[in-house]
Design a binder for these strands. Sequence first.
DNA 1: GATATCGTACTCGGATATACATTGTCCGAGTGGTGACGG
DNA 2: CCGTCACCACTCGGACAATGTATATCCGAGTACGATATC
Lengths: 160, 160
Amino acid sequence: MKMSEGVEWTAHACTLLAALPPGVGLPAAALAEFHYLAPAYMAKHMQALARAGVVESVRGAGGGYRLAKPASEITLWEIVEAIEGVEPTFRCTEIRAQGPCPGSDFRKPCEITSVFRKAETAWRAELKSVSLADIAAEVGRKATPARRAQLTQWLQEQLG
Amino acid sequence: MKMSEGVEWTAHACTLLAALPPGVGLPAAALAEFHYLAPAYMAKHMQALARAGVVESVRGAGGGYRLAKPASEITLWEIVEAIEGVEPTFRCTEIRAQGPCPGSDFRKPCEITSVFRKAETAWRAELKSVSLADIAAEVGRKATPARRAQLTQWLQEQLG
DNA sequence: GATATCGTACTCGGATATACATTGTCCGAGTGGTGACGG
DNA sequence: CCGTCACCACTCGGACAATGTATATCCGAGTACGATATC
């Protein structure tokens, strides 16, 4: 049970977008280059985020992706949801209903499913409690002056 | 990010084993038949549980699988761990270290990884808090008399 | 009749195919900017 | 000199291939039970 690496890619990409002035974006190629990632595959993942309403896409020259709402209103869970989907990790196929001694009450989920549901709820709650603004702020706080300057220069090259 | 269906299969199989008298087991074929599952594939999953020390295997006629320790000491997490492995779902590949503006401090995990680590810890904690004995007790409590009789008869057929 | 030995049936264990999902790439659709042309 | 139009470069979007993992199966290794032959 492993998470798609697209989650890591887009989470870092969105963190970068969160550091930009409001309304300003970057093309997928630039987001990929920032971490030396495959441009085409990064573009594919960004599409998923656009469909989910996490980012907005702007076509044409000077276009790209930008956050669809304030970074403080975007949680890590939204990104996971956009890439991985909303399906629970544990999918109960009700095997208890089959076999020579089938269970009786199918209106309620089986005990095993209940535990997994509860565990996954706790997992999601943690991811929902952290916003992109939180992450961006933490990253910015730890950055050295040299890194800040490097980032500023790179952004100027990208934004023109 | 979906969990292997082997987790569901083996979790239900172990719940059945937990309902048996201590020291008594069932062959993989019987565990599969109990829920109409593919016998060969069920056997493969039970092997994983045996390697992890959750169950013991007994070869030869009259052999099979039985719990390796009391059901109260086996958690759902152990079963997940045996089937899925201990690898975290979110694997940080440190992409922040690459690209034109690499991060500075690599001794500490990045902020995004930290959040996922915390979330997964919460998830595992829930699974570790429930034992097979808890599940078996709950299943037994909800069972109707008819179902109990059906189960007893089936077990007698299997155990001789 | 008791005991040792062989054979047989049963079960686990790992090696081996197959199906499906994820990963990765490409080309067409759409859009804004830019330059040329005409008024 | 200004406005309009057409072209072009740029970017997203979805369709299409390659790879890896999970799924599914089979055959060999090992063990207990039972039958048989011998003492």
